[in-house]
């Protein structure tokens, strides 16, 4: 059976309670639900962060997210998977990204969810610019994120 896969890139906030409800609705075949929420931290590399600007490459971003969802569905027995990634101006403790997966059993849901966020961080064309007391700066990619993503390569 094919999985229900959805990806959204949006400026608007999202409601976690509503997202969980949608994930569980008419989904009695699934026994396991795993989600990841990423939010704006108020510090980074020792500096205070008051806001973020998230830029992306419209078109390519959606294509990459859909490709990753398809890859997750091919590798693990998942029934549903959804990614929401926000862009634009965000402030500390705002939600940035939501990855939610349902599956018959927890192992597949855990693995697929972790794969999706790790792969998204190195493959989906988003860029963060931080603003704080020190001014503003574009973030550099982290080697630790690259290493995490490489663990999933076959």
């Amino acid at each position: 059976m094919s999985s229900l896969l959805e990806a959204y890139v949006q400026t608007e906030d999202f409601d976690i309670t509503q997202e969980y409800q949608n994930l569980r609705e008419n989904n009695s075949e699934s026994g396991a639900f795993v989600s990841f929420l990423g939010q704006v931290r108020d510090f980074n590399e020792g500096d205070n962060v008051s806001s973020l600007e998230l830029e992306h490459y419209p078109g390519m971003t959606e294509a990459v997210l859909n490709k990753l969802l398809q890859e997750a569905s091919n590798r693990w027995a998942i029934s549903r998977a959804k990614i929401i990634h926000r862009v634009g101006a965000l402030k500390a403790s705002d939600k940035i990204v939501w990855v939610a997966v349902s599956s018959a059993h927890r192992a597949d849901a855990f693995a697929a969810c972790e794969f999706l966020i790790d792969a998204l961080k190195t493959q989906a064309p988003f860029w963060k610019k931080e603003r704080g007391k020190q001014g503003e700066r574009w973030l550099d990619a982290k080697d630790s994120d690259q290493a995490k993503a490489r663990q999933w390569m076959k």
Partner: peptide
Amino acid sequence: LAFFPPITGG
């Protein structure tokens, strides 16, 4: 053809 720095989303 797009030029961009390393990705920092998520």
